[in-house]
Write a protein that binds this DNA or RNA. Structure first.
Lengths: 128, 128
DNA sequence: TATGCACCTTCCAAGCGTTGGAAGGTCAAT
DNA sequence: ATTGACCTTCCAACGCTTGGAAGGTGCATA
């Protein structure tokens, strides 16, 4: 299977697949005589795994760990759960931060006339 | 005023101040004879403005616009408000995405035993 | 067989914002 | 004169993805 075919089946861009290979997230693909990367069915599975993990917001580093756990058939589910929990907490922190930004902005925006006049509480709050 | 003093008073790292100058976010500072950047009181104000805008999550591009509006004494508050609204929407979208990630993960995590056994719904959901 | 097109390859760079280091110059006090 | 704390510039990294350029390959068509 050629890289474009893998890209289509996995939903991961060919460019990104090469990048993943270059950073060691996926193993180096075997090559045809002319140097084209050569993939098999199981690689589709592999990339889909990564794509789903990205969809849950896991970082590359975390995904490397997840792949290790995935391949380790004797893993303890405790380890996976811990990784997930750590990531959930990261998400919660970021959500909280952005929520506060949005809240502050909504408050300021509400107080702003939003017409042709220059007076603006948003600008004022930034400068004072 | 030397850059470290500006950094201290504005709360913006000296390194970052130079970077802001290099990308044109702040004007090029005047120099002493020996080449040191030379700042005045009003630069503190300027950097604080930027820092507060960053604190609200505005991008550099948006901050450039905000600075333009700040300096334009005859701006229409409508323009500022529009910029804020656009940014609020961006925040809401990202918050929503992360919320969904966190929700999915919490659900999966809940279903995971989290003990020494290898069975794990988190891994399973990633591979299937 | 030659032309064209769609693919492949590698390498380098941009985007976001911030931080770090290296190598060298300056200022002030000891 | 030496030290230490500052300054300067330049280059690179973080995390993730995408883009382009330059060149080679595979295959169908004229």
């Amino acid at each position: 299977m050629i890289i474009s075919e893998l890209a289509k089946q996995s939903g991961v861009n060919a460019k990104l697949i090469r990048h993943y290979e270059s950073i060691g997230l996926i193993p180096k693909a075997s090559r045809t005589e002319s140097g084209y990367r050569n993939y098999k069915e199981s690689d589709v599975q592999f990339l889909r795994f990564i794509k789903r993990a990205r969809g849950l917001g896991f970082s590359m580093k975390e995904i490397k760990k997840l792949i290790g756990l995935w391949r380790n058939k004797s893993r303890a589910s405790k380890e996976v759960k811990a990784l997930a929990h750590s990531h959930i907490r990261d998400l919660e922190v970021k959500i909280q931060e952005m929520q506060e930004m949005a809240d502050n902005l909504r408050r300021l925006s509400k107080a702003c006339h939003g017409d042709a006049r220059p007076e603006c509480p948003i600008i004022k709050s930034l400068e004072s």
